[in-house]
Write a protein that binds this DNA or RNA. Structure first.
Length: 652
DNA sequence: AGCACGCCGACT
DNA sequence: GTCGGCGTGCTC
């Protein structure tokens, strides 16, 4: 078809066979509004029903041989899908054998008409650009700036100390480093995207940015915003002005004018794992976007993820070392931590140091789990106690009272051990509030502050206080903690996960970085290479060793993996197709999964990724479009599904 | 998904 | 003769 304009539309649909652009004729009445990036409504299947979609591009003609349907409507004339973001979404989806529409659902917040109206009416003044700032401290003078200007990919070890901002507020030095990098980028009238794991990090970053950048230039996207606020920030980002956009993992897809820098803080934090399909990690999305846009890419963290270590070792990312090896004073103590209540849980040396430090300022105690005695076992035979109704774990509620099931809430007041018939329960692990109670008794004069996932505390002052926090929920202290006790190392290492050591190192390193310079950090009950890595603060060396052992085992991220879940016959066929797609592809399993399904794992080198994704995608489409054989056993014949997940952090 | 098209059994 | 059953296939 020629003449007139043609709208190329991505239709909202979870079906893999619809994950392509469909052409529609643009009727006269929509000529003005039908521009690339707007939300549209289109008829699908002979006008029967109307679907939502994205107008990806406008063309003058169509390759489609049939008769084009007409665009039904333009939802809003404001374009939301930038061409650059579309290219990124398409590439990220292809890499993970997923739908581009699913990526866009992560990338573009839902529309709020009121926010849109306010934005249209608002004063467009985006605020001043900063002048050239002082050199970014801690690294070779001008090195990071040069890298940003040249669009390099860089990995940095963060300065592990708290710093005081002009405002008087204390933040991790990493936040100041990223703020300086963003300010440098903005001074050149280019945008930055800074991705952080959670809003507590975001608060620090925002405070650090306030020192250097006009706040009107800073946009944030986080889960604490209302939908309207999020949409407003998104609309602001679509404008022509350079900005600094800070936020969680979805920020990697934010629209940005003249993108100059993508930075990711602590890419190894599990909060960075994208939960929504197709589960593309922001690190991978950032790598794609960096290549497409030519912007610089910066990975910053106290510990180094094995993924970034791999990128450094293959030469794709430049390592930028700090000028001076600043190392928190970590003291490993092998002394067994006894599970008995009271002071015995803390080695005497750490105990004395904490008492001493408490005269001077805040002391941090990191524990493994939240709540009060989170796990209960039989007092006699130590069998883990389970709910008699549903099999869920039993806990003692924060407020006290009878143990109850975490899943169904059933009270376990009449619990009886199914193994030995005993009726008494005991606490198998000690949670934060229990530790807080004990420490409160042991340090009767100290104020005890508890911070956990449920009730996180963002910051504490410089006055003496015993701060008991679960890993990942440690508040930042003005001036830094005078001592840090990492108590539950042993217990944290018991978690079942391939990445447990990596996670523990990150939790310890991030807590250690909250200490004042020179303050002692006691790592209790952990010895060996892992403790050694922390005391020497050579965390990239540990990542390097870990990567080497994963290479030997052919585990990710030395190779890539994809899991395939479906009915047994479909899994077998998909694994065959993946193995045939490229040399060096192998598979594990399949093993039984839920509901009579099976799950297999495909392993492949990075170079084979495109071929494997293409092959599995073809299988998904084949399975979805294949005529569904009606089984004699009548009930509902559900459409067959082949679930494919690439680079799942929980696999293997 | 959802909906229209299509080729075999009980009906005014 | 025809209404409609659900299996099958497609969506610009």
């Amino acid at each position: 078809m020629a003449g007139g304009s043609v709208a190329r539309v991505l239709v909202d649909s979870p079906l893999p066979q619809l994950d392509q652009l469909f052409d529609y004729a643009v009727p006269e009445r929509l000529r003005e509004a039908a521009v690339a990036g707007v939300r549209v409504r289109v008829p699908l299947r002979s006008g029967g029903r109307i679907a939502n979609g994205w107008l990806v591009e406008v063309a003058s003609s169509s390759e489609f041989e049939g008769r084009l349907s007409e665009l039904d409507d333009v939802v809003s004339e404001v374009p939301l899908l930038m061409p650059e973001v579309w290219a990124l979404a398409r590439a990220a989806a292809d890499r993970a054998a997923g739908n581009a529409g699913d990526i866009l659902r992560v990338a573009i917040p839902s529309r709020y008409v009121r926010a849109e109206r306010a934005w249209r009416a608002a004063d467009p003044d985006p605020g001043e650009l900063p002048g050239p700032g002082a050199a970014i401290p801690g690294y070779e003078r001008g090195r990071i700036e040069t890298g940003i200007d040249a669009g390099q990919r860089m990995a940095l070890a963060a300065d592990p100390r708290p710093v005081r901002l002009d405002s008087g507020e204390w933040v991790g030095a990493w936040a100041a480093t990223l703020a300086a990098a963003a300010a440098h980028t903005l001074a050149a009238d280019r945008s930055s995207l800074i991705i952080v794991p959670d809003y507590r990090d975001q608060e620090q970053l925002q405070a650090a940015l306030a020192d250097r950048v006009d706040p009107r230039r800073v946009l944030r996207t986080d889960a604490r915003q209302t939908g309207g606020e999020r949409f407003r920030a998104f609309l602001d980002a679509t404008g022509a002005d350079a900005r600094v956009v800070i936020g969680n993992r979805s920020t990697v897809y934010a629209p940005a004018s003249r993108l100059g820098l993508i930075a990711i803080w602590d890419d190894g934090d599990s909060l960075q794992n994208e939960q929504l399909a197709p589960g593309v990690h922001p690190r991978d999305a950032a790598l794609i976007r960096q290549e497409q846009s030519g912007a610089a890419l910066l990975f910053l963290g106290h510990s180094r993820s094995v993924e970034v270590e791999r990128l450094v070792e293959i030469g794709w990312v430049h390592e930028v070392p700090p000028v001076r090896h600043v190392r928190p004073k970590v003291i490993p103590t092998e002394q067994q931590a006894s599970p008995e209540p009271g002071s015995a849980r803390i080695p005497s040396s750490a105990w004395r140091a904490a008492q001493q430090a408490l005269l001077d300022g805040p002391v941090l105690v990191q524990v493994a789990r939240p709540g009060h005695a989170p796990m209960l076992t039989c007092d006699r035979c130590r069998e883990p106690a389970r709910c008699s109704a549903c099999g869920g774990a039993l806990v003692v509620p924060r407020s006290g009272g009878d143990p109850r099931c975490v899943l169904c809430g059933t009270s376990a007041s009449t619990w009886r051990c199914p193994v030995c018939e005993a009726t008494k329960l005991r606490a198998a692990t000690v949670g934060a509030s229990r530790t807080a109670e004990e420490l409160g008794r042991a340090f009767p004069k100290a104020r005890v502050i508890l911070s956990d996932g449920e009730r996180p505390v963002l910051k504490v002052g410089a006055e003496p206080a015993l701060v008991v926090a679960t890993r990942g929920a440690e508040p930042i202290a003005d001036g830094g903690y005078r001592a840090v006790l990492l108590l539950d190392g042993e217990r944290m290492l018991l978690r079942e996960s391939l990445r447990v050591a990596e996670d523990c190192l990150r939790w310890w390193a991030n807590a250690a970085a909250l200490a004042a310079p020179g303050a002692p950090i006691y790592l209790v009950g952990v010895a060996g290479a892992l403790a050694q890595s922390l005391t020497s603060w050579r965390l990239s060396e540990w990542a390097s060793g870990e990567l080497a052992s994963r290479r030997a085992l052919r585990f990710p991220p030395a190779v890539r993996v994809a899991s395939v879940t479906a009915a047994p016959a479909l899994v077998a066929k998909a694994l065959d197709a993946a193995r045939d797609a490229a040399p060096g592809v192998d598979s594990l399993g399949p093993v039984p999964a839920d509901e009579g399904l099976e799950r297999g794992i495909v392993r492949f080198d990075y170079a084979a990724g495109v071929a494997v994704a293409k092959a599995l995608r073809a299988e998904m489409i084949r399975v979805a479009t294949e005529r569904r054989r009606p089984v004699a056993g009548q009930p509902p014949k559900r459409p067959a599904v082949l679930r494919v997940r690439f680079d799942d952090p929980e696999v293997p």
